[in-house]
Computed example of a mutant assay.
Amino acid sequence: MSAIKIAVLIGSLRKESLNHKLAKALERLAPHEFSFEHVRIDNLPFYNQDFDSDYPPVCRQLKEQIKSADALLFVTPEYNRSVPGVLKNAIDIASRPYGASAFAGKAGAVAGISVGATGTALAQQHLRNILAYLDVPLMGQPEVFVKYSDGLIDQDGNIGVESTKKFLQEFVDRYVDWVRRHVHT
């Protein structure tokens, strides 16, 4: 089977981001033919509709990186019960102008980790609403709302708790099947 390229959008800019660790853990559980490319979102200007007639180069680069991917993986924290602004801004840039979304038709999944008891449930629900509008077919189950604890996942994506590893492997296996059903390779 030929390689399948996944664009990974992480909604956190923090150096020690838990969601970056989770993304790496998910990547490590995927088969070798899946390659993961983290999409840079920390260098983007705030979306402005004036871009629609002449996108800045960094915005064009974002759109091209997403367009060239076969599928999408969103890994996000929850800020004030919603999607972090930096992730929403990247989505707004890559989905505009109307009718020229880089996301349309690309299979995706959403996951997140937090120190809070409810994980990232509300942020993920908001993100799912946004992505549904943008014509991204999202995997529905299993939902991944991981509550972080020390030793759960290290910087390299190694998972230190066997039950978490098993659950995340089930998520990745379903995601792999989901992507394969939607990608024509």
Rank of each mutant, 00 (worst) to 15 (best):
M1L: 15
S2N: 14
I4H: 04
I6W: 08
A7T: 02
A7L: 02
V8R: 04
G11A: 00
L13V: 00
R14E: 08
R14K: 12
K15L: 10
K21L: 05
K21I: 03
A25C: 10
R28L: 13
R28A: 12
L29T: 06
A30I: 13
P31Y: 03
P31I: 04
P31T: 09
E33C: 09
F36S: 06
H38M: 15
H38G: 13
R40F: 12
I41C: 12
N43P: 10
F46Q: 09
Y47H: 05
Y47P: 04
N48K: 08
N48G: 09
Q49C: 06
V58I: 13
C59D: 01
L62I: 01
E64K: 15
Q65E: 11
S68E: 06
D70W: 03
A71P: 00
L72F: 05
L72D: 06
L72H: 07
L72R: 06
V75F: 07
T76P: 05
N80V: 14
N80K: 12
N80G: 13
R81G: 01
R81M: 09
P84N: 02
L87T: 05
L87M: 07
K88E: 00
I91Y: 05
S95I: 02
R96G: 01
P97Y: 11
Y98H: 08
A100D: 06
S101E: 00
A102H: 08
F103H: 09
A111N: 11
G112F: 08
S114P: 00
G116F: 04
A117Y: 11
G119S: 08
G119P: 07
A121S: 15
Q124A: 08
Q124C: 08
Q125T: 13
N129C: 07
L131D: 08
L131R: 06
A132V: 11
A132W: 10
Y133I: 02
L134C: 01
D135F: 01
V144R: 00
K147S: 10
K147F: 08
L152V: 07
L152S: 08
I153V: 10
N158V: 14
N158Y: 13
E162N: 15
S163K: 11
F167D: 15
L168C: 11
E170A: 13
D173M: 14
D173G: 14
V176D: 05
D177Q: 12
V179M: 09
R180N: 14
H184A: 12
H184P: 03
T185C: 07
